[in-house]
Design a protein around this nucleic acid. Sequence first.
DNA 1: GTCTATAATCAGATAGAC
DNA 2: GTCTATCTGATTATAGAC
Lengths: 220, 220
Amino acid sequence: MKPNKMPAAPSASTTKASAKPAKVSFKAQMLLAREDAIVQAVNRLLAEKGFDAMTVDEVAANVGIAKASLYKHFSSKEELAAAAMVHVMQRAQAFLSSLPADAAPIANLRAAARWMMQLKLAGEMPSLPSQNSTLRATLMGNKAYMDGVMEASDHLGGWIEAAQANGSLNTTLPPIAVLYTLYARACDPVLEFLRLNDQLKDDAIIDLVLKTCFEGLNAR
Amino acid sequence: MKPNKMPAAPSASTTKASAKPAKVSFKAQMLLAREDAIVQAVNRLLAEKGFDAMTVDEVAANVGIAKASLYKHFSSKEELAAAAMVHVMQRAQAFLSSLPADAAPIANLRAAARWMMQLKLAGEMPSLPSQNSTLRATLMGNKAYMDGVMEASDHLGGWIEAAQANGSLNTTLPPIAVLYTLYARACDPVLEFLRLNDQLKDDAIIDLVLKTCFEGLNAR
DNA sequence: GTCTATAATCAGATAGAC
DNA sequence: GTCTATCTGATTATAGAC
């Protein structure tokens, strides 16, 4: 789907592509297309059931290939999850870059939070257990993922500082706390709770959570 | 630890206690003491690793009994988790009841949120996956748990309405959304993130999150 | 690279003696 | 009720043919 996808080990295919442009480029495209299908299935399943409940058999069945074939592309369940995370980080990067640089920084922060919540309510936000140490290790060792996190944090961090400088963001909060608070909107259980127990539409839910996040519970 | 513990199926022992006061009361005490030890181990492990990563073998090892003995007290892993949840709900109920009825309702809401976060940072807040359907079913079918949730929600709900009536709580937020937002502080990943990446003390972390929760990210 | 078939392991739950 | 030993099923991962 994205032409500039960055898998964990693309060196071989990339090298071959420059040697035999036409044919190998086609094979590489096929390969990437299949890997993309895998990543999309993983992404959906991770959003739906979480990492622990997702099984590799399910992934293979959803993609329509044999489980052993999966392991030719990704060497472990953790790598599958990492690939999904890389994918969402790329989407995030694309979204953040699309925001107007001349807009109010606080508006861009709101837009970023809204985007994450939309992704979650749409069932496209993978949910990983933060306590799983082997999963953490895999993510930490994945350069594409770490780069994505860093880049997004820089992006948001710039707006946070700017918003504090122009007085629109609470200056008594450490920027890192603001950043974490925004990231946490990607896994806020309030979203699902409101959808389950009330008849609110997704947009109304997001407006509500966005309001509590930026304006707080206290009256103003 | 709590003398008035309410296990899932206490009818038999309670009935026997009235028939043979002295001896069976002692046996019942032993039973409850052991079950309390189990619940405490489960509570700690659930807080530490979460439901999926916790194994029944671990629980048995921590309590110091055989796994088969565990199943004489609780018929499934889900029942173990439910018992832990009942336990925290009882602690919550005790705390909420200890708050001054004549205090500002918004102050009591803050105190409740603070209490939950203290529990979480102390490693005493069980964390359960919200997507697990069989676990959900077990919890929903547990009367003691459901009663606890209902009672706590009534308690908090009263303060929410009072705080909106006296103008200290944002009146544009539906009370149910406020309630969910408060409950969500019990599983807020921002707490751990701040602890991991900064050198903040627990009290400072809680003050920070409490501030963002009630005052919001926007400047005032 | 893809497949079928199978290892290897682990975890929830139970049997049956005491 | 507690124990040891075991069953049962699910799940990650791999072997080996094509």
